[in-house]
Design a protein around this nucleic acid. Structure first.
Lengths: 207, 207
DNA sequence: ATAATTAGCGATTAATAACTAACTAGGCGA
DNA sequence: TCGCCTAGTTAGTTATTAATCGCTAATTAT
């Protein structure tokens, strides 16, 4: 009856189960027992693959990092303007959260970070990278004369990221009652439009 | 040697200790034992005042609610413009977080909310109220011709609140390395300026 | 085919943490 | 001053959960 798999695939299964369970029950209440049950093992079986629970969380963190990097990369296409690139990054990030809703909870779980320095390091680097990508594009847009001269690229990046985070929070506590990526793109467009030199397109400035 | 106090003052002491400990060690790791030690009682002594730990959390939540309402009220003064009122609300909120840094962690702790419906209800109402206060002032500013016509007051309120939340997150993970209220006011002013019809004051729009 | 490797199990343990019951003593009112 | 109420203590229980150890059996290499 004992289904035996290679350590490699089992590890993947465990990480995926952890992501699912962290979503449904919250990351803090992820027990080795629940993971084991979800994946069809006994509780000590988990420790064959991750000697300590911390190790499991680090694997989850690396997984999240890899997913983000992949989505960011895929979002950047030929011939996009800096502004469009920012919008694409926002959309990519929100699509990822939509597909893997455990991510924000894990990313910002103080409980997890307190017990695990590795996680904090990994996630801090990730958020910094995301920030820099957006600030970079804001900077280019400003140089191209698209953004107002009183827009600081770092501030602009912060405002866009805050928008994403805030929207995810609202989405969560609202019971996921709206289209996260669509609403995010809509708000990002507005936010960026406010910072543009001449409100191009639909958003007129008429009295 | 046993210092005996009235239940009323003891309850207050316990709630205050809980807020301090929730800050230093995270809300999820607040144990009745640590609270007892902080307040100078034995662990079962806590249960004399709060029969269940949940009850303690609800008292903490009510305390937070009361603090917020008080600060919001105090922030509104005679003769302020709607824009100034929004800035004052942002500053008040960030001052409160600065003084009681456990608040955001408690407010957004999924772990706590999962185990306690009461908390979720209290906090949801609180956040909704904050949002409505800002949206209301944005609406008035728009009617007064201060904000652009393409600014939706609800969106504006969301963007301001997201800014506050995002800044608190950055403040936390940066190890509280900057002046939270000051930076918040600075960013809120920029954000509001972007949404203003004519960029008044210093922020010129020149090419 | 046989030996070596290793995924997985059963049984247990140690630590943590909420909560309970029975008793003790401080302080206020009569 | 005495007695009552109740804040607080001592000594426990129960439940949960990460982690360990020795063993079994499935897979792989020789």
């Amino acid at each position: 009856m004992r289904t035996r798999k290679s350590a490699e695939t089992r590890k993947q299964e465990i990480v995926e189960a952890a992501l699912r369970l962290a979503d449904s029950h919250g990351p803090e209440r992820l027990t080795t027992d629940s993971v084991a049950e979800a994946v069809g093992l006994t509780q000590p079986g988990i420790f064959r693959h991750f000697p300590r629970k911390q190790d499991l969380w680090e694997a989850v963190a690396r997984r999240i990092g890899a997913m983000m990097e992949a989505r960011w990369k895929a979002a950047q296409r030929e011939g996009m303007s800096p502004i469009e690139e920012i919008e694409a990054l926002v959309e990519a990030q929100l699509r990822l959260v939509h597909a893997t809703p455990a991510i924000p909870a894990i990313l910002f779980s103080r409980e997890l970070h307190a017990r695990n320095d590795g996680l904090r390091t990994i996630f801090h680097a990730l958020l910094t990278r995301f920030h820099q990508m957006i600030a970079d594009r804001a900077s280019r847009a400003k140089e191209a004369g698209v953004l107002r001269t009183d827009v600081d690229p770092q501030d602009a990046a912060f405002l866009v990221i805050a928008l994403v985070q805030g929207l995810v929070v609202r989405w969560s506590i609202s019971g996921r009652s709206f289209d996260l990526p669509a609403e995010g793109v809509r708000l990002a467009q507005r936010q960026l439009q406010f910072m543009m030199l001449r409100p191009g397109g639909e958003g007129h400035d008429a009295i």
